[in-house]
Design a binder for these strands. Sequence first.
RNA 1: GGGCGUAUAGCUCAGCGGGAGAGCACUUCGUUGACAUCGAAGGGGUCACUGGUUCAAUCCCAGUUACGCCCACCA
Length: 762
Amino acid sequence: YISIATTRPETMLGDGAVAVHLSDERYASIVGKLCEIPVGPKEHRRFIPIITDEYPDPDFGSGAVKITGAHDFNDYQVAKRGKIPMYRLMDTQAALRADGAPYAEEAAKAKQIVESGELPDEETVDAINLVPDDYRGLDRFEARKKIVADINADGLAVMTKDEDGNAVPMVENKPIMQPFGDRSKVVIEPMLTDQWFADAKTLAEPALASVKEGRTKFVPENWSKTYYQWMENIEPWCISRQLWWGHRIPAWYGPKIDSDGCKLETGESEIFVAKSDAEAVQLAQTYYGSDVSVSVDHGDFGIVLAGGEKLDIGTENERIKLDSVSLSRDPDVLDTWFSSALWPFSTLGWPEKTPELERYYQTDVLITGFDIIFFWVARMMMMGNHFMKQEPFHTIYIHALVRDEHGAKMSKSKGNVIDPLELIDEYSADALRFTLAAMAAQGRDIKLSTDRVAGYRNFATKLWNATRFAEMNECKLVEGFKPEDAKSQLNRWVLTELSRAVNDVTREIEAYRFNEAAAAVYRFVWNKVCDWHLELAKPVFGGEDEAAKAETRATTAYVLDQIYALMHPFMPFITEELWERTSGEGVSRDGFLMHSSWPVEGILDDQAADEINWLIDLITAVRSVRAEMNLPAKARTDLLLIGANDDEKAMLERSMNALQRMARVDNGSVASEAPQASAQIVVGQLTVCLPLEGVIDFDAERDRLNKERDKATGEIEKIEKKLGNQGFIAKAPEAVVAEQRTRLEDLQATVAKLDEGIARLG
RNA sequence: GGGCGUAUAGCUCAGCGGGAGAGCACUUCGUUGACAUCGAAGGGGUCACUGGUUCAAUCCCAGUUACGCCCACCA
C-alpha cells in the first residue's frame, strides 16, 4: 500500500497517477509500476502508474501525492509534464458527472489508455466519465462522505489509535487555505474548461518597458515595484467569462472539414475570429468554398446537410458532405478588465481617427487605488502600447485607501464601509474633502478619524467668520488692487505671506503632495491671516488714519479673495459661495470661482515680513510672561525697549496700537537700562522689559529667566561640541557650518542678556 | 512561500542627514461686536530594538521584534 493524504477524497475517482519525488529512495523500486485506486466498484478497480516529478515534497506526509489533473492547479502541472490523463469528475454545479456511458464502459476506456501508454487528445479524455454509477449526480460533499465511508468499510484507510486505544481512521486536523467564491461564499472547485486566453507575456513587455524607461511614472514611485512584480511574473490572461454582460467574444464556430469538403468524424470545430457577422461569414465562405452556403444563426446553431437534415455542430461519427453551414458565435463575453483596458482610447472614438483621439490621447494623470494596479492599470498600459503604440498616461497617482477603524480595507461585500454621506451630513462635504486631502500622505493608508473631520469643519467655519469680519469692516475688493503698491508694513507682511503660501500650495499640488498643500493653506488662513492679520488690522479699522484704513480694507479683501481660490480645490462649496457673496462693486464675477485662474506670487518683502514677525514674537512673549507671572487678565503694563536705536524706536512706535490691544501694554518707550523690578524678555536682538513694581515675584522671575537660560546653554553646548569637531568643520557644507555659527552667536547673545537680567534682579 | 509597507506626544497622523511637529485630548486663564465649531498660555516624546555607514542618524543600510496589505498556495 501507498499512503496518500487528501482533503478531497472524492477526487480519487479521477486520479491519473501517484507521484513521488525524483530523489525519493523509499519509492524508487516501485516507480513505473501500477497501483490500484481503492475506490469504485471492486470488479472495475482502476490501475494508475507511479511516476516521479519534482512537485511532491518528500518530507511532507508520506511523500506520495495523488494526481488529479482536472481538479487541482498543481496536479494539472504534474499531469501535463507526465502526460497523465486528466479525468473530469464534476459538472458546473459541482455535482459528480451524470453524463456518458455506464461506468464499466468508461473504466475500460481508461484502462486502455493506461495499457497503451498513448495519451488521447484532451477532448477525448474529457468525455470519459469515471464516476461510478451509484455516485453519479451526487453533490460533491455527499460524494465525499460516501467515498470515505466506502474506504473505511473496506478497511483501506490508514489507521491510528484514539485516546481509548481503539483503532480509528487517521484524520489530521490541519489548517489549509481554502478559496471561496467572492460572491457565492462557496468553496471553489478547480475544473478543466475551454477558455480564451490572451498572450499576456507578449503584451506585458512594452508595458513593462514604459515604466522602467520612465515614460510613465508611478507616484509614489515605489508602486512601480508592485507593477514590475506582477508584469514580470505574468500568467496567460483568461479573457472569456460565462456571463451575459460584456463585449461578446468575437469568435464564430463552424464544423471543421477535410480536403473533400466533408465534416470531420470527430466533430471538431473551425474557429473564425472576425470583427462582425459579415466578416465571419466571409472568412467561412473562403474556408468552406463557394458551393456551400454560409450564414450566421443567432438562435439555433447548427449545420444543414444536403438532404435538409439539421445537425448540431459537434455531431460526431458522421463524415458528411456539407451543403450549408450556419455559424454560431461564442456565447462568452470578454473579461471586464479586457474591455476596460480599452477605455483610454475607445472612449475617444477609436478605432476611428477622431479629433478627440488626436487631442486627448495620450491622456495625463491616472488617479487610482493600488488594488487596481493589476486589474486595470496594467491592462490599460498593455492595450495602450499595443493598439496606440503609446502609453495611455504619463503619470499614475496611486492614492491612499480609506480603511475602517480597524485598518481593514472597506468593501461592499464585507459591509464595513463608512458611508461618506453620513459624514457629510454631520460635518459637510467640504470638511470631509479637506480631511481626505490632509490625510492623503503618499504611501500610507487612511484610517478615517472623525475628530479630524470635525477639526476641518471648524476650519470652514473659521473662514466663514473671517469673511464676515471683513464684511463688517467694509473690506471690499478694489479693482486694480496691486500688492506692490501697499504701503503699511502690516499689509506688505500679509501679502508677502500670501505669496509664500501660494508658492507652497502650488508646489505641493504639482508634486502630488496634497496633504502638504492642505497643511500649507490651513496654516496660512488660520495661523497667519486669522490669528494675526485680522487681529492686527483691528486697531487700523478702529483708528483715525483713513488712508491706512482704506489700504488695509482693500488688502484684506484681496487676501481673502486669493484664499478662496487657493482653498477651492480642497473646499469647493464654501469657497464658491463666499466668492460669489464677496463680489464688490465694480468687480465683475462672471461664471464660477472654479473657472477663475489660479493665484500667482505677488510681492515678497522680507523687511516687512521680518518686522511683523518680530512684533508677533514680541506679543507672544509678553503674553507668555504675563501668564507665567499670573498677571490678572485685565491688568495693563508699560513696556520698555532697552538700548534701542532709532530704527527700532520707530518700529516700536508703529507697533504701539497692536501692543496696546493685543499685549495689554499702556505706554511703550525706549530706556537705556531696565528697572530692577521688571520682567525681561529677549526677542530677537532686543531686550524688552515690563516694569512690574509691586507685582513681580522676584524669585519666580529669577526661576523663569534661569529656566530659559538653561535651555539656551543646553543648545550652546551641543553646537559648540559640533563646531569643535574637526571633521564637522572639514566635511560639512559651508552653509551648514555658517548656520551653526550664527545660531551659536544668537544664543550666546540671548544668554548674555538673560544674565544681565538675572543680575539686575539681585 | 514571493512581494510591499508601517512602528514618532494619551489618540489620529505629518515630517526629516544638521534646531522633534500638527489636529484632537489634557491643564490654567479668558465672552467689551468675526468666530466658544472661539481666543491666550502651557504640560507631554530615549522618534520600536540592536548593530553599521557618516563629521553628523528619528531620517540612510543590515538584522530583530510587532503589526498590516497584495499575490500565490501545500497533497
